[in-house]
């Protein structure tokens, strides 16, 4: 607990990191308040025909603080729902890729030799390929789009950078005396990895997760925007796609601006937090 406090004090001094944290808290508030917002149930329910005033996309009014989309659906409640989707997609996809990356890095670094060569070759190939086209082509081959399949694909693509860092860290940890001591006292490989090496690299994994969230949210939003997302889920990318395909881009600033700005701010926030954590974990980056 003492260490946590010490690290948090370091984090607090990082202005950019704190900015990121506040942006994130704002969107978390939106997630929590989303279901209580009075008009959330109108997210899917078209108001055209119900409300005489609303026939198509309308600018912000007292009833709809951010206006409505082409079917008269409330944009603010879509935005709140999109926040929940973004956190869900970002965190679960990043968790998946960090788990895979940590596992691959640990195994490759610890066992070395052929295992290492094969795993790292695979890592390098995945690392050099442009990820978005890869995600697009896999999503296309799988046909039906569902949010969890997309999360799975993003998670399966995003692990290489984590694997590389974890491998490097494992390689250097492996040579330390305490590992030697554990081996001499008869600990199995499994025990050495899980008890002695893993705890030392988990902070790094956690760091890579914050960067992974950024990538995952951008990837899902990109897919949705291109029309390859899950059409039954109101994500921010999907909101933009509706706006774009119905030709409202240049006519409805109240509709174009919020979802794109939200995507950008949330990914920005996660990235800032990641950078701040990076400076805590790698003291070399800190100012002397």
């Amino acid at each position: 607990m003492g260490r946590f406090k010490e690290n948090f004090n370091l984090f607090r001094k990082n202005r950019l990191g704190m900015t990121g944290l506040f942006i994130l808290l704002f969107f978390l508030l939106l997630v929590i308040l989303g279901p209580i917002l009075p008009r959330i149930d109108e997210m899917y329910r078209p108001m055209t025909g119900v409300d005489k005033e609303i026939l198509w996309s309308t600018p912000p009014s007292r009833a709809h603080l951010l206006g409505t989309d082409f079917m008269g659906r409330d944009i603010l409640s879509q935005l709140a729902h999109g926040a929940r989707i973004a956190f869900m997609v970002g965190i679960s996809a990043a968790l998946a890729s960090v788990l895979i990356g940590t596992l691959v890095g640990l195994v490759a670094g610890y066992f070395g030799r052929l295992t290492d060569t094969l795993l790292m070759r695979l890592t390098d190939i995945l690392l050099t390929l442009p990820s978005l086209p890869l995600i697009i082509i896999i999503a296309a081959a799988l046909g039906k789009q569902s949010l969890w399949i997309i999360v799975g694909i993003i998670g399966l693509i995003g692990w290489p950078s984590t694997a590389r860092v974890i491998r490097a860290q494992t390689l250097s940890l492996k040579e330390r005396p305490f590992i030697e001591a554990a081996r001499v006292s008869g600990a199995s490989n499994f025990r050495i990895i899980t008890r002695h090496i893993a705890p030392n690299i988990l902070p790094l994994s956690f760091l890579y997760m914050t960067f992974g969230v950024t990538g995952a949210i951008l990837a899902e939003a990109g897919l949705s925007f291109l029309g390859l997302g899950d059409p039954s889920v109101v994500s921010w990318g999907m909101m933009l796609q509706w706006c774009f395909t119905t030709g409202h881009t240049f006519r409805a600033p109240y509709w174009v601006l919020p979802p794109g700005l939200s995507i950008s701010l949330v990914t920005f926030a996660f990235y800032l937090i990641g950078r701040a954590l990076d400076e805590i974990i790698n003291p070399r980056l800190r100012e002397r």
Binding site: L16, G222, F225, L240, F250, L257, G260, S264, R275
Partner: peptide, 30 residues
Amino acid sequence: RGSRLEMGATVFGLFFYTVFIPWFGLIAIW
């Protein structure tokens, strides 16, 4: 290091680094 310029360039650069490209492109076209 530590100057206003550094802070400004970092924030500016990072924002665009993580911006949602299609949205930013649309705004630029607009």
